[in-house]
């Protein structure tokens, strides 16, 4: 066991767990934050994504040790932001959500993209989503939703 301290959704937390725990399990089991999902468990689907220092990472292949001292935002923290409201609204309007399991990861991917590139081309959106799988929507609605969010949320990113 080891104590690891990091910022989680704006607050400093310390967990006492083995350094070689997958961060996904620490989030879901120890911290009871179940927004990040386990899809593939091997870095291919993005269902487990969170923001690490503002950038998307997959927590199923991230050991607890790697978050020491870092700033982590999960979908639970992100959903209190104005940016989330804009994205949520855009996803609803474009019909971009079906079963929903991929959506926390999609929102995290969208935030990671828009914070680097507030006015992305369709190509940039596709690249940003290239590590996120959705087995329901066929992606086009998700891409349209992010395009809409970039427009309607102009100035927020």
């Amino acid at each position: 066991m080891a104590e690891v301290t990091f910022t989680l959704n704006g607050e400093e937390v310390t967990v006492d767990k083995p350094l070689n725990m997958r961060f996904l399990d620490v989030l879901r089991t120890t911290l009871d934050l179940t927004g990040a999902k386990e899809g593939c468990g091997e870095g291919e689907c993005g269902a487990c994504a969170v923001l690490l220092d503002g950038r998307i990472v997959d927590t199923c292949i991230l050991p607890l040790a790697s978050v020491a001292g870092r700033d982590i935002v999960t979908i639970e923290g992100y959903r209190t932001t104005e940016r989330f409201q804009v994205l949520q609204n855009a996803f609803v309007k474009e019909g971009a959500v079906q079963c929903g399991i991929c959506i926390p990861g999609m929102i995290i991917a969208a935030e990671s993209l828009l914070s680097e590139n507030p006015d992305p081309s369709d190509d940039a959106i596709r690249t940003a989503l290239s590590g996120n799988l959705c087995r329901c929507t066929g992606y086009n609605m998700i891409i349209a939703a992010i395009r809409r969010a970039a427009k309607e949320g102009e100035g927020l990113w």
Binding site: P18, L19, N20, M21, R22, D25, T29, E38, G41, E42, G43, I61, L62, P63, A65, S66, A68, G69, R70
Partner: peptide, 28 residues
């Protein structure tokens, strides 16, 4: 980054990753 070695040693969900050796975590 761990993106290779985490998967090469993949074990069960919710259990520590069963690495073969002690680990030196240099990501930070």
């Amino acid at each position: 980054g761990g993106t290779d070695i985490m998967l090469k040693n993949r074990g069960y969900a919710e259990a520590p990753v069963p690495f073969k050796k002690n680990m030196l975590y240099i990501f930070n």
